[in-house]
């Protein structure tokens, strides 16, 4: 990639900060629409990280976003934290696998968004032992993950289209 160690570290820090900020902005100012449907703005940063830095950095950025995001909102190690963690772990695995398989950015974004919802529902099933209740929300989450994933994927594509020419010119 041609980025030296310090630049790489600065990039990682900036992306983590952006992911945490978007996560907090979304949860405080945008919130959920009906049920628990969210845009998943922080997913844009996860997509950018995997394309710009790599899979290891994506894990770091996503973990930082959940841990620090929840810490700043005072929700660390509460039920919300574990639900977020479940979603992020599954979506990160999907993101890495699809990137390795060479899938398109939009498709990766949608599947990662879907896996985020599924991961959250799985944690709810385990935490609350209510598979019926969780199953009721899953069809709605799956249906809305597709447009939300396309939206975040498209935004990430727009950003990458602007960053990549800068990288080639050596601006990083």
């Amino acid at each position: 990639m041609g980025i030296d160690k310090t630049k790489h570290f600065v990039y990682l820090t900036l992306l983590s900060a952006m992911a945490i900020t978007l996560n907090i902005i979304e949860s405080i100012y945008i919130g959920a629409f009906t049920f628990n449907i969210r845009i998943g703005l922080a997913n844009i940063i996860a997509l950018l990280t995997i394309k710009l830095l790599g899979w290891k950095e994506t894990i770091v950025v996503n973990l930082m976003r959940v841990v620090i995001g929840n810490l700043l909102r005072g929700l660390i190690f509460g039920s919300t934290f574990w639900i977020s963690m479940g979603g992020v772990v599954l979506s990160t695995i999907a993101l890495i696998l699809l990137d390795k398989m060479g899938s398109s950015l939009m498709f990766t974004s949608v599947i990662s968004s879907l896996c985020h919802s599924v991961g959250q529902v799985l944690v709810v099933i385990v935490l609350y032992n209510q598979p019926g209740v969780a199953a009721l929300t899953l069809p709605y989450l799956l249906a809305t993950s597709i447009p939300m994933g396309l939206l975040t994927g498209y935004t990430a594509k727009l950003v990458l289209d602007r960053i990549k020419p800068m990288q080639k010119k050596g601006y990083h």
């Binding site: 939009m106 599947i111 069809p139 597709i146």
Partner: peptide, 17 residues
């Protein structure tokens, strides 16, 4: 192929709803 996968998932979700 990716569009087909998304359509299948969307279909399953709509059937569920």
């Amino acid at each position: 192929k990716e569009w087909i996968v998304l359509l299948v998932i969307g279909g399953i979700a709509l059937i569920g709803i």
